[in-house]
């Protein structure tokens, strides 16, 4: 396989101008054919080895799988996490306990762990982001066997004090669970982005039915794109 200047430059991770200069100075053995310079792949590999340079093979398919789950919005995560209405309780402990018990896709052994992790996180700092909404989530993820991230939306029976930054009691919990920090962060920031929208917040506080809520989120995500 004969490579031209551009391909050589790509493989050596150098600018074409540099490779051109090397050819002119006779540092790299490329031959001329109808005005263009070429080098055989084997020769380039050997030359690079002699000069302790790395030859990389350009590829385009790397990192696609991560990108796919990273690129997806909060809608599938909300769908997977499900919705809990009229969640009763007066403290974080009781609320988390009953919410975690009802959260789908968790093994029974994991529930206790998730519960503890949520509480542990809450002890460090409240996840109440104000305006009556909290986004409880564990700080680290090992031990949770979820393959895909999920957001469980809980509408509380009555507002509960949550030590939120604006000191308002909380009436909606969006519990975010995932198994990797990258996905977690990406979802968290997307969720936070939508929650900055005042009309969406008000709509959430009204405990809308799952179907309308999902439709609204779908519309918002379409707009955001």
């Amino acid at each position: 396989m004969a490579l031209n200047l551009k391909e050589v430059a790509e493989r050596l991770n150098m600018p074409v101008e540099t490779v051109q200069r090397w050819v002119r100075q006779g540092k790299i053995p490329m031959y001329q054919n109808r005005g263009d310079y070429y080098i055989r792949h084997e020769m380039l590999t050997r030359w690079a080895e002699e000069h302790q340079l790395k030859v990389t093979i350009p590829n385009s398919s790397a990192g696609q799988t991560v990108q796919q789950t990273m690129g997806e919005g909060i809608l599938p995560a909300m769908r997977r996490g499900g919705f809990l209405y009229h969640l009763a309780g007066d403290s974080k402990e009781i609320l988390f306990k009953s919410a975690v018990d009802l959260t789908p896709n968790l093994e029974s052994a994991e529930r206790q762990q998730v519960y503890e992790k949520l509480l542990e996180r809450e002890h460090l700092a409240s996840t109440g982001i104000g305006h009556g909404i909290a986004i409880p989530h564990p700080r680290s993820h090992p031990g949770i066997g979820l393959r895909l991230p999920q957001i469980t939306t809980c509408f509380l029976e009555h507002p509960v004090p949550f030590e939120a930054i604006d000191h308002k009691p909380v009436s909606v919990l969006m519990i975010l669970l995932s198994d990797s920090t990258k996905q977690h962060l990406s979802l968290l920031s997307k969720l936070s982005f939508y929650l900055r929208d005042r009309s969406f917040r008000d709509f959430l506080l009204g405990a809308p039915p799952a179907k309308t809520l999902l439709e609204t989120v779908a519309r918002m995500e379409a707009q955001a794109k």
Partner: peptide, 18 residues
């Protein structure tokens, strides 16, 4: 950067998550 400019995230995220 996306988290730095999102004030809501300031009280939610810890350094070790970033």
């Amino acid at each position: 950067r996306p988290y730095l400019f999102d004030r809501q995230m300031h009280s939610v995220l810890f350094v070790d998550q970033l």
